[in-house]
């Protein structure tokens, strides 16, 4: 008795200690980079290859950022792929109403893409919180609905943009990096700070970790559970904007399977499906790891049909490592 284990000075010391087991995502990432550099020498490390790789992962990566928050809050979203195509299509549709003024058209395109996707995210969130429908089921439903509506609007054909300037957004390059990559990184940093350093971010973790405790801690469950869906709607809007302007066109079957890539990036990035904890920057690493694996397989000339199998394998390994860690 009387032995006081707690000592505030210890705290600083603990911070500096680097625990290998806590950084499995980063270690996996570094191993993969080294492996890819050796196997893909010298093509993998070429600047052009890396930039292409980053651009490729940005579209699903941006969506995965929002998905990270949903999964931390204890939710799930299957509808993001359909949402991307739907929002992108509606944005081009709206923009084409303003053919006379190119600048105004682009502004409308950006605004509609972001706000419409945010609205779709809000619908998902309301179904889960007010409708009390399990996230998996609610978003399975909206996944079908959003996809069906865009196919109907597009009359099963392409929705092509008549605006000549719109395409500059998605294919633009700033300081050597494509615009989608900038969006990906900036949003990631922003959301990581949101998660770590704001009240709402902490409450999202609290709700995901234990809803009952959150309720007894006077946290407004419905509001906090809704926010990640709305944020995901917004990130989907960003992705839809970049994707549709890159091609200056949307095909109603675009972006199917994005939900799985996004969830894979979250899981590989070290955020457990059980909720409560997780990292947005981890998801960035997860998305890039998925890209590297695809890239390696392409460089090695492996059939593209096998790429999905490789992805599946990585997801399973990532979860196995996490499970070990928890135990």
């Amino acid at each position: 008795m009387g032995k006081k284990l707690f000592n505030f000075k210890d705290n600083g010391k603990n911070k500096q200690q680097f625990k290998l087991s806590e950084h499995t995502t980063l270690i996996g990432f570094l191993c993969l980079v080294v492996l890819a550099s050796i196997l893909g020498w010298p093509d993998f490390l070429r600047m052009r290859n890396i930039i292409t790789l980053l651009r490729q992962v940005s579209y699903t990566g941006i969506i995965a950022l929002g998905m990270t928050l949903i999964i931390i809050s204890g939710g799930f979203d299957l509808s993001v792929g359909s949402m991307t195509a739907f929002a992108g299509g509606v944005a081009i549709f709206a923009m084409n109403k303003f053919t006379s003024n190119i600048a105004l058209g682009v502004a409308v395109g950006v605004l509609v893409s972001l706000s419409f996707a945010t609205l779709l995210g809000l619908i998902n969130g309301l179904l889960v919180t007010k409708g009390k429908i399990a996230p998996f089921i609610a978003t399975l439903g909206t996944m079908s609905i959003y996809r069906s509506l865009i196919i109907y609007f597009a009359k099963a054909g392409n929705i092509e943009s008549l605006n000549t300037a719109y395409g500059n957004i998605g294919s633009g390059v700033i300081l050597g990096l494509p615009v989608p990559v900038w969006c990906f990184f900036i949003l990631a940093i922003f959301l990581q700070i949101f998660l770590d350093d704001t009240k709402t971010g902490k409450y999202i973790c609290a709700v995901g970790a234990n809803e009952q405790v959150a309720k007894y801690s006077a946290i407004n469950l419905d509001k906090i559970k809704l926010i990640p869906y709305v944020i995901t709607g917004f990130t989907v809007g960003v992705s839809a904007l970049l994707w549709s302007s890159r091609l200056n066109c949307i095909n109603p079957s675009d972006c199917s399977g994005y939900e799985l890539d996004a969830i894979a990036a979250v899981v590989i990035g070290g955020t457990p499906m059980s909720g409560g904890i997780g990292s947005v920057l981890g998801t960035v690493i997860g998305a890039i790891m998925l890209g590297i694996i695809n890239n390696m397989l392409v460089l090695a000339g492996v059939s593209s049909y096998l790429q999905q199998a490789a992805k599946g394998l990585v997801i399973i390994i990532a979860v196995l490592v996490q499970y070990k860690k928890e135990k």
Binding site: C205, A206, A209, N210, Q212, V213, Y216, G276, I277
Partner: peptide, 8 residues
């Protein structure tokens, strides 16, 4: 079950 978050 209701009071504290065990993982935090």
């Amino acid at each position: 079950g209701r009071g504290i978050h065990l993982i935090f």
